[in-house]
Simulated assay, not measured.
Amino acid sequence: MQLLEETPADWWEVEALYDLCFAPGREALSSYRLRDHVDPVAALCLLLRDQNGIAAAIRYWPVQVAGADLLLLGPIAVHPTHQGEGLGGWLIRESLARARDQGWARVLLVGDAPYYSRFGFARLDNVVMPPPTNPARVLGLELVPGAWDGVQGNVTPYAPMLEK
């Protein structure tokens, strides 16, 4: 199994994996509106490839809460023939370590707390994803101690400051 950064040539193969692993209409989810017209954080979009193709993939996107930059983790998927092998955990741990090394302070995701809590994610009561997101599934992780302190409000698309 090779751990690689996703390249533009991998895009459609990764999309096919997401189509295989998620329900039809996945792109109608509110988290996808936060990704519209925004490039993913390429250095954190990783995949695991074996002799048969992509076995697992993870992507990250920049978003903001009250002007604070953060990462939106997702989607992450593991091919059905590789589920239960720990590949998803491998991608999460590796990508979070890289995010920390690159200076990111906080990560957000929408997911199952019992699964993601083992990586340090916890419910964010004061961070609101666009509807119809279940608030109990809005989870965050501090890559820097105290990074979520005072960060509250609506999650909005990434809007970098324009240079003067």
Rank of each mutant, 00 (worst) to 15 (best):
L3R: 05
E6Q: 13
E6S: 12
P8K: 05
A9V: 08
D10Q: 06
W11I: 15
W12C: 00
E13K: 05
V14W: 02
L17I: 06
L17M: 05
D19S: 12
L20N: 09
L20Y: 05
F22K: 02
A23L: 14
G25I: 08
R26N: 10
E27V: 08
S30W: 00
S30H: 04
S30A: 15
S30I: 10
Y32C: 10
Y32W: 15
Y32K: 05
R33A: 15
L34S: 07
L34H: 04
H37K: 11
V38W: 01
A42M: 03
A43P: 00
A43R: 06
L44C: 10
C45D: 08
L46M: 06
L47A: 09
L48I: 08
D50P: 00
D50S: 09
N52P: 00
G53R: 04
A55L: 02
A56G: 12
A56H: 02
A56K: 01
A56L: 06
W61S: 14
W61L: 04
W61I: 07
P62L: 08
P62V: 08
P62H: 05
P62M: 05
V63D: 01
Q64K: 11
V65S: 02
V65Q: 02
V65R: 00
V65W: 02
A66T: 06
A66N: 12
A68Y: 13
A68S: 13
D69E: 13
L70A: 07
L70P: 01
L72H: 10
L73V: 07
G74Q: 10
P75C: 11
A77D: 03
H79T: 03
H79C: 09
P80W: 07
T81C: 12
T81V: 12
T81P: 00
T81D: 15
G84Y: 11
G86V: 06
G88W: 00
W90P: 00
L91F: 12
E94I: 09
S95Y: 04
S95T: 04
S95W: 02
S95R: 01
S95V: 07
L96I: 12
A97C: 06
D101A: 15
Q102N: 13
G103F: 07
G103T: 10
G103I: 08
W104I: 10
A105R: 11
A105I: 05
R106V: 09
R106H: 11
V107T: 04
V107G: 03
L109I: 05
V110F: 04
D112G: 05
D112E: 14
D112C: 06
A113N: 01
A113L: 13
A113R: 06
Y115A: 05
Y115L: 06
F119T: 03
G120H: 01
F121R: 00
F121K: 00
A122E: 14
R123Y: 03
L124T: 03
D125P: 01
N126F: 06
N126H: 14
V127D: 03
P130I: 13
P132A: 15
P132G: 15
T133L: 04
R137Q: 14
G140E: 07
L141V: 02
L143T: 01
V144W: 03
V144M: 11
V144G: 05
V144T: 15
P145G: 09
G146I: 02
G146C: 03
A147S: 14
D149Q: 15
D149L: 11
D149I: 08
G153R: 03
N154P: 03
N154D: 14
V155W: 00
T156S: 13
Y158F: 13
Y158P: 00
A159P: 00
P160E: 11
P160W: 14
P160Q: 09
E163C: 10
K164C: 06
K164L: 08
